[in-house]
Amino acid sequence: MRFGYYSGPRKFIPLMEAFFVSTGIVALAEIGDKTQLLAFLLAAKFRRPLPIVLAILVATIANHAFAAAIGTWITTLLGPETLRWVLGISFLLMAGWILIPDKLDEGDAKFAKYGVFMTTLIAFFLAEMGDKTQIATVALAAQYHSFFWVVAGTTFGMMLANAPAVYFGDKIANRMPVKIVHRIAAAIFVVLGMATLLGAGSRFGF
Rank of each mutant, 00 (worst) to 15 (best):
Tyr6Met: 14
Leu87Val: 04
Gly205Pro: 00
Ala152Val: 12
Gly199Cys: 03
Pro9Tyr: 10
Ile122Val: 15
Trp149Met: 13
Ala39His: 08
Ala112Val: 14
Phe20Ile: 10
Gln143Asn: 11
Leu83Gly: 01
Val166Ile: 12
Ala59Gly: 03
Met158Asn: 12
Ile52Ser: 06
Arg10Met: 12
Pro14Val: 02
Gly4Asn: 04
Ala62Pro: 06
Leu99Trp: 05
His64Lys: 08
Asn63Arg: 06
Asn174Val: 10
Ile61Gln: 05
Met194Lys: 09
Lys179Glu: 14
Ile56Trp: 05
Phe148Gly: 08
Phe66Glu: 03
Val178Leu: 12
Glu106Leu: 08
Gly169Cys: 06
Thr120Pro: 10
Thr82Ala: 15
Pro177Ser: 10
Ala163Phe: 05
Gly88Pro: 05
Met129Gly: 09
Arg175Lys: 11
Ala55Cys: 08
Trp73Ala: 15
Leu197Ser: 06
Arg2Lys: 12
Thr23Cys: 12
Arg175Gln: 13
Val181Glu: 05
Met176Phe: 10
Ile180Lys: 12
Ser90Phe: 07
Met158His: 12
Phe46Cys: 06
Trp97Ala: 15
Ala163Arg: 03
Leu104Met: 05
Ile52Ala: 06
Gly24Glu: 07
Ala39Lys: 02
Val150His: 00
Lys34Asn: 00
Thr35Gly: 00
Thr23Gly: 02
Ala59Cys: 07
Asn63Phe: 03
Arg10Leu: 14
Met94Lys: 03
Gly115Tyr: 07
Met176Asp: 03
Gly115Val: 11
Phe189Ala: 02
Thr75Arg: 09
Ile52Asp: 07
Met194Thr: 12
Ile122Leu: 14
Ile135Arg: 10
Thr35Ser: 14
Ala142Leu: 07
Gln143Asp: 11
Phe117Ile: 05
Ser146Pro: 06
Ala127Glu: 03
Ile100Trp: 06
Ser22Glu: 01
Leu42Thr: 01
Lys34Cys: 00
Leu160Ile: 14
Val86Ser: 01
Pro14Glu: 12
Leu99Pro: 04
Ser202Glu: 14
Met1Gly: 13
Phe117Asp: 07
Thr133Asn: 09
Pro9Val: 13
Asn162Tyr: 01
Val58Arg: 02
Ala68Met: 05
Phe148Thr: 08
Ser22Thr: 09
Gly96His: 09
Gly8Val: 09
Phe66Val: 13
Lys113Tyr: 11
Gln143Trp: 04
Trp73His: 12
Leu121Tyr: 06
Met159Leu: 15
Phe20His: 07
